[in-house]
Amino acid sequence: MYPSSFDLTVARSVAEATAALSEGGEDARILAGGQSLIPMMKLRFAFPSLLVDINEIAELASLERQNGELRVGATVRHADVAASDLAFGAVAAAAPWVADPLVRNRGTLVGSVAHCDPEGDWNSVLLATGATVQIAGADGSERSIPITELIVGPFTNSLGEGEMLTAVHVPVPSGASGGAYLKLERKVGDYATVGVATHLELDEDGRISSAGIALTSVAPSNLKATEAESVLIGESPSGELFAEAASLTADAAEPRSDIRGTAEWKRNVVRVYTRRGLEQALSQARSS
């Protein structure tokens, strides 16, 4: 299968990219890893008139820790995150389970975030860890918003015309912390049937000071289980507590029956994986 025709601009700087994007109008798209966009173009589900290739912009390729945050630039590949010692908790746990090894060599974390596919893994991880995204505008402006404000709906983000994501910032906890990403997939390369990201931080007394739970593939968008998170905070971890949080998370999910399985079963998997994910996060936090 073959994509329909388009123009392509190779941008050498963020300014060039946002200018081209702005000029290209609403049918212009950023081309980063292309591992979601190109298949959609080949299947003729997407028909951009202009692609702005950002792969040659050197400053977007950095993965680093700065100011207590993990900064993932817009062309950092999934494989770079998976291989990096800087990744931690749910971020490190999720990276090897994104797509397959070859797609991870090319696809980018930030591209996946911008794509807002409810079956994408990264937005759950960012929702659980309280990440922010960095946005550049055509006028040279830069702004930063929490991930919750980027995700508008399925395949819809809040970026304005001429805007692009330049990086994702994930806060690095200063105390004891742990995270997990449990993904039920039918085979390597499959989207999640159910994905659960968990993140826990403990205070000096071993109580939960911060908690994050977010879900992949079981709602119209990646879903942050806020009610479950709030019952965890301030409490001492226990099997009963995690079971309660898992139940609340399962209640919050909105799974649909499809080729991957029934809604009832998926809700059950959310519950089981949330409990297991919290146990893993706790065990990691206690040994950190």
Partner: peptide, 18 residues
């Protein structure tokens, strides 16, 4: 591509310039 295995059905030829 620069020594890294990628699926060439999901890269545009234009992107291997250089």
């Amino acid at each position: 591509l620069d020594g890294v295995p990628v699926k060439s059905c999901t890269v545009f030829a234009a992107q291997v310039d250089g």
